[in-house]
Nucleic acid binder design. Structure first.
Lengths: 186, 186, 186, 186
DNA sequence: GATGAATGAGTTTTCATTCAT
DNA sequence: TATGAATGAAAACTCATTCAT
């Protein structure tokens, strides 16, 4: 495998397994099967490495979620589709979820710009605006809508990954989507 | 002030200001106005200190949220009341929010037991069960309900603290409560 | 002994014994009989440590050389006295010489300000100006005079320390002073 | 250009620009426009490279300085000529000066034999001995004479390169030569 | 000959914890 | 109780050198 890729993957694995706190360059190198110095051929340092990983995940997430978006479908259908894609993304690669959560809540850890926390939410914004224009989605502030979409999705994934629920159980997701939809539909 | 208290408060302040990653015992001592060694008179070590702080916040949170709970009120009233109390808790002491979020998403950082992540959700569980029994709340799995309550609350506080919305604006909270309620009511 | 002092002395010893190139914090700590981390209690880092040592030596040198200066003496007497004091300074503490030489010729190693290279020459400037005013010293540019004073002194010390000559041999210094004086006197 | 040559030149440039301390093989390679590994085709390692460069400069210096030497001229004329050639050497290629100085004062850095420090002084020794034999130069120890010749020359070049004086100014050199001569002539 | 990715030992620096006062 | 200087293990990072291509 490409070494840069291997290093990023090993960070992902380690952050998920042991948390940011226990992450160190030696472990990353070992997990990736490279020498410690090799990391510095691909990244300026720990910070750069972490940021690069976050950027990669965000890009993949947005791409995958927006993939499900189809202008010819109804807002509700798009909402369900996006929820579905987003949940799939994290369920397929649970490490991504853990990493993103830890990254998001680590103020000034590895980022200058707090706003990038919200990069992950871009697909949601798109849908929200279209729904409000069409009068299908409640006319309440964007931030509130956002919280009603992102919040439940985030928490349900967390609960699933903590084995507090099983989103793969038949009907489970449908119920969730419907309920979440009721919070935002006009 | 009591030294133990001062130390806990300074952890809270520092985690919020600089994040877990940049937290260290010297800074904690300085911020608290005590000597580094003094911390060890009150806590076994860094881990114990962090855990003690988390426990303290959880206790305060649960107490404050459950304070608003009144068996003679309707489920919806109790829901609104709880949401309100929970949001107040974090808006009054924003450092608590940042700390709890970071603590929660730092797997195996300072805790063995992942379950304590969910200690904060105890008040919600109480309400949920009563509402379902009374047929007022949707008969869907607890975890899904939980995600529909905790998720939005969590996200809206985050957005407020990031100045992406203002929960103190007239009507803002009411709209939020109503929407969140629609997601869980039968 | 004072630990800060011990650390500075051990840098001096090591730079003289092995050169800047082989200097490292571990060796400094060992030589000083302290833990590696202790150095950082007294100095911000390696750079700060080196600069502090240089500043200390310059201060000692200037103090010792100017001590011999007496306004009631002739310029020539003062010249001899200063040469003598300067040579004594380095012969008594030969490590100082090696350190200062290496520091001086290490561009951008540990210093921003190239001008501080010339701090050591302050006593010479004083004497030069007075001698020129009195018409006893040649009326040629300061820099040339400086080179005729500092240059020989510097080289003779180097040769002595390299055992190429012996400045303690009877009459040796006197001959040197006289010759050096002939270069600058009118 | 010849690669070996390019590598040597790039060391010279880098040592002058950033000092020995910041010199490293990667920078050398980049500056020379070759791959890091290529250096090892021409030199055994860093030490060998540095020593080769020093040897090259010494050879060039001695050749250039001795070029001006003419047995049919007077000792004084030869002295002036040598001073002139030596100063020209460093003023034409200032990097040489910085390199030689740093090399000289880095004990045990790259050389076993301290005596090679004095290789540069060979031309001076030649003149000195002839002058003493002829009774034109003071009958004082060689080392003292050496310090009176090499010392001022060294310092004046340093001051010139540090822009503290200008040896190209009309008459400047002549004054310097005369003064330096007065220190050594009988 | 030439490359430059890879190595890993070595370096600087940090920091939780201890302990003499 | 309280201190804070001191520790030293562990962390991030550097860099001379090698070697497969």
């Amino acid at each position: 495998m490409d070494k840069r890729e291997a290093i990023l993957k090993s960070v992902l694995k380690l952050v998920n397994r042991e948390g940011f706190y226990h992450l160190n360059m030696k472990k990353i190198a070992q997990e990736a099967g490279v020498a410690a110095g090799t990391i510095y051929l691909y990244f300026k340092g720990k910070e750069d490495l972490i940021n690069a990983l976050y950027a990669m995940i965000v890009a993949e997430f947005n791409q995958q979620v927006l993939e499900g978006y189809d202008d010819s479908k109804t807002v509700k259908e798009n909402f369900f589709e996006m929820m579905s894609k987003a949940i799939d993304f994290y369920l397929d690669q649970p490490d991504n979820f853990s990493f993103v959560e830890q990254y998001t809540y680590a103020p000034f850890l590895f980022k200058e710009n707090q706003d990038e926390n919200f990069l992950l939410l871009l697909p949601i914004y798109k849908m929200m605006r279209e729904g409000k224009t069409a009068g299908i989605i409640r006319n309440i502030p964007d931030a509130i809508l956002l919280s009603l979409i992102h919040g439940p999705m985030n928490t349900i994934v967390k609960l699933h990954l903590a084995h507090k629920t099983d989103l793969n159980k038949k009907g489970a997701r449908q119920k969730f989507y419907e309920a979440a939809w009721d919070a935002i539909c006009a």
